[in-house]
Each structure stands twice: as structure tokens, then as C-alpha cells.
């Protein structure tokens, strides 16, 4: 099997996975009582009407009286055409709420992810190259500090220091500034810094240990014997095999910390992003919005895994596509 066919197979598999998840979600929702129907019954009872009649009317209005397969087909159509219903929490369509929140989240999560993926392995390899020296200890200390200190606490401290006392950055997040502007960079610098320091620790440690294995490998000895500079030797011969196992965990790890970390950082810095939206939707029991955020993260995870699989095979040419 060649690379194109392998990629095609993985894409089809990703589509199947997403369909399975959407189906399970539909099953759970169909089994759960609909809050709007319950509300209609309560309202009817309060106003002296007939609750059962109100329930029937509401079910009819929402198409809940249709057969299950018809509702399933409608649901699938809705999900894949991005018609994800109305959010009562924000009083607008769910897709609109999600896209706006994603717009603000992306502004800090893209630089956060890029910087984490660049800096984490670099510090790891640097540590490995200077193993047990003060440089290694310093790099490890910094990475562990960032990993250990809770993001929201670190965020508040830095906001007080740079926002309130030094007044270098604004305390109130401004949604009106242009995405690619100095003002936006200024207000996002601390959130990105907090998130990067929080996430490079694990990556740095894995890459340090991985690259330590290759430091004295035969191909490194050959490279050194041929007079390759240490920088080139580490960049070309150590970094690449180090990234192979990392690539299998990085996307998953980042997705895992994405929701939790971004919620707290968004709360502290007042960024109206996905984390806050998801949390608020859960607290307010806004079913459509919870479903929307769940589906969004599901799709991101499915696509992330797809990219991970592809990157994995590109990085390591020893991997065969046969039997996959």
C-alpha cells in the first residue's frame, strides 16, 4: 500500500469514527427527557392548562413524534450541515456561538500549540546534549516549574504584575482589536506564555529522554567522525527520531489539556473562547450548546488523530504501509 492509499484509508476510517460518535450521541439524546418538553408541561400546569396536551404539542412542534429513523436522518443532516440548533444560553444559533468562540480561542491556541511544539523538543534535546550539567538542571527546573504551577494561579500573578502594577498589558481583554496587531499581541502575550510554560514540561522531558537514547547511537558516532557540527548532528540526526514517539502523543496531550487549561486561562484573562463557552453551557444545562461543543471537540480529536497518523508515517520511513 502506498502513502496516498494509506491516507485515503485513514480518512475513511476517521469518517466512520465520527459517524459512530454522532450516532451514540443521538442515542443518548433520544433516551434522555427533553427539557423543553418538561418546561412546556410545567408551564401548562402553572397556567391551569392540561400538561399532557402541552407535552404532545411541544413534541409535535419539535418533531419528537416522528419515527426514530426519521429523527436520526434529520439529526445527521443537521450535524453535517452545521445546523446544530439554538443556544438558549447565548440566544443565537449554536454554530454561530461556536465559530465566534473558536475565533478567540484560535488567537491564543495557535501560537500556544506552535510554540509548545517548537520549544518543548528543542529544550529537551538541549538538555540531553548537556545532560547533568547546570544547563540541563536549569532547563528541567524551568519546565517543571511551568508544569507544576497551576495555570490560573500563574495567570493571576502575571496579570497582577504586568497588568496592574507595571501596566504593560491591559487587564480587560478587548475583542475589538485586529487579530494581527500589536495590541492583540500585547494582550495575548501573557496567556500564551502561561499556557506554553504549562505544556512544554511533559514534551521537554519525553524528548530529553528519547534523544538521550540517540546521543551515543552508531549514526551519531558516524556523523561526529565525519566532522558534522554538533548543532547539525542534533538537529538532523537526533531530533528526527526523537519526534517519532512524540508525534504519537503530542496531539492527544494537547487536546487533553486544551479544554481544561483554556477554560481557566480564559476566565482569568476574560477571553470569550471555547473553554468558557463549554463550561457555561454545562452549568446552564444548554443541551444544544453542550452537544455542539462536544461534537466540535470530537471532530478536532478525530482530525488530530488523522494528522498524527500521517505525520508518524512521514517522519519514520521505516514504517511500512502494508497490513495497515
Amino acid at each position: 500500500m502506498g502513502l496516498p492509499r494509506y491516507v485515503a484509508a485513514r480518512v475513511v476510517w476517521a469518517a466512520v469514527v465520527s459517524l459512530v460518535i454522532v450516532t451514540i450521541t443521538f442515542g443518548l439524546m433520544a433516551a434522555a427527557p427533553n427539557p423543553a418538553v418538561q418546561e412546556a408541561a410545567t408551564q401548562a400546569a402553572l397556567e391551569g392548562g392540561d400538561p399532557e396536551e402541552a407535552v404532545e404539542r411541544e413534541r409535535e412542534l419539535r418533531g419528537l413524534d416522528e419515527p426514530l429513523h426519521v429523527r436520526y436522518a434529520d439529526f445527521l443532516r443537521g450535524v453535517y450541515t452545521l445546523n446544530w440548533g439554538w443556544s438558549d444560553l447565548q440566544n443565537r444559533p449554536v454554530s454561530e456561538a461556536l465559530s465566534e468562540a473558536l475565533f478567540y480561542t484560535a488567537q491564543y491556541s495557535v501560537p500556544w500549540t506552535v510554540l509548545t511544539l517548537l520549544i518543548g523538543p528543542l529544550i529537551g534535546v538541549y538538555s540531553a546534549a548537556n545532560m547533568y550539567s547546570w544547563r540541563d538542571h536549569l532547563a528541567t527546573g524551568v519546565a517543571f516549574f511551568g508544569y507544576a504551577i497551576p495555570n490560573f494561579f500563574f495567570g493571576i500573578i502575571l496579570l497582577l504584575l504586568f497588568g496592574v502594577y507595571l501596566e504593560w498589558i491591559p487587564v480587560v481583554y478587548n475583542t475589538d482589536v485586529a487579530v494581527f496587531s500589536l495590541e492583540n499581541a500585547r494582550q495575548l502575550a501573557i496567556p500564551v506564555f502561561v499556557l506554553v510554560t504549562g505544556s512544554i514540561g511533559a514534551i521537554m522531558r519525553v524528548s530529553r529522554n528519547e534523544s538521550a537514547e540517540f546521543r551515543n547511537a552508531d549514526f551519531m558516532k558516524t556523523a561526529k567522525a565525519k566532522g558534522v557540527s554538533p548543532l547539525r548532528a542534533y538537529a538532523y540526526h537526533v531530533m528526527r527520531p526523537t519526534m517519532v514517539p512524540l508525534s504519537t502523543t503530542v496531539v492527544g496531550q494537547l487536546l487533553a489539556i486544551f479544554l481544561g487549561s483554556s477554560l481557566l486561562v480564559e476566565v482569568v484573562f476574560g477571553i470569550p473562547g471555547l473553554g468558557r463557552l463549554t463550561f457555561d453551557a454545562l452549568i446552564a444545562q444548554d443541551t444544544n450548546l453542550v452537544l455542539g461543543t462536544t461534537l466540535l471537540f470530537t471532530f478536532v480529536a478525530v482530525v488530530g488523530n488523522l494528522i498524527e497518523d500521517i505525520v508518524f508515517t512521514v517522519l519514520d520511513p521505516r514504517i511500512s504501509y502494508d497490513d495497515r
Binding site: 497588568g163 501596566e167 487587564v171 480587560v172 476566565v267 482569568v268 476574560g270
Partner: peptide, 18 residues
């Protein structure tokens, strides 16, 4: 401005942003 964190709200008051 919606600012959920109390520390940030108070910070905005101190700096004059609020």
C-alpha cells in the same frame, strides 16, 4: 465588560480600565 475572575475585575478597577 464581562470579566468572570474577581481578581481581574479588581485589577481593571485599580488600573482605571473599569
Amino acid at each position: 465588560e464581562v470579566i468572570e475572575s474577581q481578581a481581574s475585575r479588581l485589577g481593571a478597577l485599580e488600573t482605571g480600565e473599569a
